[in-house]
């Protein structure tokens, strides 16, 4: 071992250097751990916030549904036979005298047709009914990373079926 090697060895084995290495390793681990935790907490809080938002929207949807039902009844109240009769009376209408009725044949008029109630509109997210919420609301961080990498790799042609 020449002198230069001895000095280098001595330098490498100095206690302060070992201490710095150890502290550095611990600090680096702590920083990485903290970063991961920060990301995890951030993602969790975001997911939680949106989760609450979803619950709020679900409550709102139910309120709207109740409101629609209630409004239908209010409309029916306003147009009930009793109310319409009163309004007609106030407006000066009176019951028709059968002798004053004139009947005409109107070509193409077939009288009252059978009532058809329009089918209710399909839910906007009908296609999600089986799968539940969109992935953005339920995926974990690792799912998101995996999916992002997968999508990037598709775009770059790294994976995926070729011809």
């Amino acid at each position: 071992m020449n002198r230069a090697q001895k000095i280098l060895q001595a330098y490498q084995n100095t206690p302060w250097r070992q201490q710095i290495q150890m502290v550095g390793s611990v600090a680096a681990t702590a920083v990485i751990f903290t970063l991961v935790m920060i990301v995890y907490v951030w993602v969790s809080s975001e997911a939680g916030t949106y989760g609450l938002k979803v619950q709020e929207l679900q409550d709102q949807a139910q309120q709207i549904e109740r409101s629609i039902e209630d409004k239908k009844v209010q409309l029916a109240d306003l147009t009930s036979t009793e109310n319409l009769a009163e309004r007609a009376k106030e407006a000066g209408y009176e019951a028709v005298d059968p002798n004053r009725i004139r009947y005409l044949v109107v070509d193409g008029y077939y009288g009252d047709q059978q009532l058809q109630l329009a089918p209710p509109p399909n839910a906007v997210h009908a296609q999600d009914q089986e799968g539940g919420l969109p992935d953005a609301f339920t995926a974990s961080l690792f799912d998101w990373i995996r999916e992002t990498i997968y999508q990037l790799s598709i775009r770059t042609g790294a994976v995926g079926g070729g011809e």
């Binding site: 916030t49 949106y50 989760g51 609450l52 979803v54 619950q55 839910a123 009908a126 009914q129 919420l133």
Partner: peptide, 10 residues
């Protein structure tokens, strides 16, 4: 747990 939020079925 809002993280486990689930969609209400129609």
């Amino acid at each position: 747990n809002p993280n486990n939020v689930a969609q209400l079925p129609d």
